[in-house]
Structure formats: C-alpha cells, structure tokens
Amino acid sequence: MNLISLFRTKRTTAPVARDRLQVLLAHERSVLGKSDLIATLQEEILAVIAKHISVDRDAVQIKLDRGASVSMLEIDVEVPAPPANKPSGTSGPSVPASV
C-alpha cells in the first residue's frame, strides 16, 4: 500500500450488495414469492368478476407490498371495453387497500 492508495477513495462493495439485493428481492417477492394467499386471492377475485363480466386471466393483477408498519394490497382489474360503439377507457380503477 502506498500513500496514494491510502488517500484514494476506495470502491466499496457493501452498497453494491445492498442494491443487488433490493432489485433481486423486489423481483422475487412479486414472482416467486407470490404466496398462497396471493394465488388464492387472485383465483377468488377472478371468479367473482367472471360472474358478471368476462375478463382475461391476465387482466387481474394482485400485488402485496410488505412494509415495516403498513402493507399494501393492490388489486388491478382491467375491464374490457364494451363490445360496440363505446371505445372509451379500458383500464378499471386500481383499488388499494390496507391489510
């Protein structure tokens, strides 16, 4: 070690580890981490909606964000446009609810 390297700011590794983990876990929680609860909710919500409107399976998105004090359950249902003359908004409201 020489004097220059003593004063040069070293590239540290821990922040890299933290950032990699944050990206990876955000992904894993949404895909692999999809718990039984989410899967069950998705199926049941889909079934309720299907009774009244015909929707695509992919049109129902459910997300659960775990936070320290508050968790957020986000249900996003994309309602298809009515068959004829009204080609207005296609996206239904997003309903956030605390769990």
């Binding site: 540290t12 821990a14 922040p15 933290r18 936070g67």
Partner: peptide, 18 residues
C-alpha cells in the same frame, strides 16, 4: 468491516427484510 462499507450494515439488512 461494516464501517468500511465492506459488509452490509445492520440498517441495510433491516431495511431490506423489514
């Protein structure tokens, strides 16, 4: 090592795992 940023800090782990 945590102070030298060579190891994850406890706050980082806490923030990630909450």
């Amino acid at each position: 090592r945590a102070a030298r940023n060579e190891m994850l800090k406890t706050e980082d782990v806490l923030e990630i795992l909450s």
